[in-house]
């Protein structure tokens, strides 16, 4: 049931949390809220109670476009046999760490 078909239910939002400065926002989960302001506040209460975050993004779930599982073959399998796309064929000097 979508938010549009049930007017009594608040829309669903996806929540992204940045755990510390410099890192990416990561998907943390979802929640219900009447609008963006409430979604941010709900996200603060639901997902950052244990010091998980320094920044929050919310986006209404309906605005997220997802790939279809039916397309998985065409989308992802062609990458399986193209190991040359990984930068593993270079000889690195010993001095270079963390590659």
């Amino acid at each position: 049931m979508s938010a549009e078909t049930n007017r009594n239910e608040w829309p669903l939002w996806e929540v992204f949390i940045r755990s510390k400065a410099g890192l990416d926002h990561k998907h943390a989960g979802s929640l219900h809220a009447a609008d963006a302001q409430m979604a941010l506040e709900n996200a603060r209460d639901v997902y950052t109670r244990r010091m998980e975050g320094v920044s929050i993004w919310v986006v209404e779930s309906k605005h997220i476009h997802a790939s279809s599982p039916d397309d998985a073959e065409a989308f992802f399998e062609p990458a399986n046999d193209k190991i040359y796309r990984h930068p593993t064929f270079y000889n690195l000097p010993d001095e270079v760490k963390y590659m």
């Binding site: 929640l31 709900n42 209460d45 639901v46 109670r49």
Partner: peptide, 11 residues
């Protein structure tokens, strides 16, 4: 009334 506000109030 909803889970999210339940958590907000207990916080």
């Amino acid at each position: 009334p909803i889970l999210e506000q339940d958590i907000a109030l207990t916080n």
